[in-house]
């Protein structure tokens, strides 16, 4: 249906990535890494006083989204690209039944109400929600997990090709989180949906995305297929991030804290932004900011002076 390139984005500090049709990517980073800003930039709604100083977003091979008139941007939103936020309770209007909120969306996009409600019922079933109960409920009558599932259903209502999820499970209990992840995985497979999944917890995305982007201090430090990145992280930050997640089984002695505080964007050092917390720092890191280098063989990109694709290849 649409060209292979869904979107190219350049935001925060020289952040570019491509999401292919049916592909899911995870954006991982600590708070303050700029991952949420990227999400807002995707919809040209970076909160004031922020603004997108530079860069382009292309949806479905079309012209730069950022230069479109607002009315045209609105059309894309919900219909082609949708967003799910962390705090579902804040995106649902507390005073309206879910059914009414669905009808409002239909109205805003000149859609037929009854048809949309039928779609909504189907979606509820997919989300393991009782359609009669969920649609007639006020948001406060639903549990956190149910609300998050409802907001995912709302996002999928107009059958978008791309869904951006900003920490959609952080506020949920383990079992609710698992249910949301399981459903997202099913939906994405059955609908050929592209996901951009933003989180601070790598383990959350490991089962659901194809590719992971690790961000630090507003920059991409590593990208690659998720399994490879988890098995063999190349950037010291990724290694630290993964090393701070205690394994469920096996050796615990390798688990250690990522030292230091997340980078303060107001006072970034010259050179590599991660240098203060990096165990492998050497002289060059304090003067030269590493650029992202691509290893064509493994489709991995790393921004670290210690990463050399050629030698990596030989080593393997």
């Amino acid at each position: 249906m649409f060209p292979s390139e869904v979107g190219t984005l350049k935001a925060v500090e020289d952040v570019s990535f491509v999401v292919h049709a049916g592909e899911s990517i995870g954006i991982v980073g600590e708070s303050g890494s700029g991952k949420s800003t990227v999400a807002f930039a995707l919809f040209d709604s970076v909160p004031a006083p922020g603004e997108i100083a530079q860069g382009e977003i292309h949806y479905f091979g079309q012209s730069n989204f950022l230069q479109w008139p607002e009315s045209k941007q609105r059309e894309v939103f919900w219909q082609k690209v949708a967003m799910v936020f962390q705090a579902a309770q804040n995106t649902l209007n507390p005073l309206l039944r879910i059914r009414q909120q669905i009808l409002d969306i239909a109205d805003a996009h000149d859609m037929d109400g009854t048809r949309i409600l039928r779609t909504a019922r189907d979606l509820c079933t997919t989300m393991y929600l009782d359609p009669d109960r969920a649609l007639n409920a006020y948001p406060h009558e639903l549990s956190g997990g149910m609300k998050q599932r409802v907001s995912i259903a709302l996002a999928l209502l107009l059958n978008p090709a791309l869904v951006v999820l900003d920490e959609p499970t952080t506020a949920l209990d383990v079992i609710s989180q698992a249910s949301v992840l399981r459903i997202l995985n099913d939906v994405r497979k059955s609908r050929q949906l592209s996901l951009v999944f933003i989180t601070h917890d790598v383990s959350v995305v490991s089962e659901i995305v194809d590719r992971v982007i690790v961000m630090y201090a507003g920059r991409i430090v590593e990208t690659g297929p998720v399994r490879q990145v988890i098995q063999q992280p190349k950037h010291p930050y990724t290694r630290g991030l993964l090393g701070s997640i205690p394994p469920l089984r096996g050796d615990l002695s390798q688990t250690r804290a990522l030292s230091g505080q997340p980078a303060n964007l107001l006072h970034l050092p010259a050179g590599c932004p991660f240098q203060d917390r990096c165990p492998d720092r050497f002289e060059r890191c304090t003067v030269e900011t590493p650029v992202i280098v691509k290893d064509p063989a493994s489709h991995r990109e790393v921004a670290c002076h210690l990463f050399h694709p050629e030698t990596e290849e030989r080593a393997q």
Partner: peptide
């Protein structure tokens, strides 16, 4: 002092209305 990464202080405008970001209530 600098409070650049305080989670509570982040409130954002979005096309969906005001949405606070940052986990408050797991």
């Amino acid at each position: 002092g600098a409070n650049s990464h305080g989670r509570t202080s982040r409130r954002r405008q979005s096309p969906l209305g005001s949405v606070p970001v940052g986990s408050r209530n797991p």
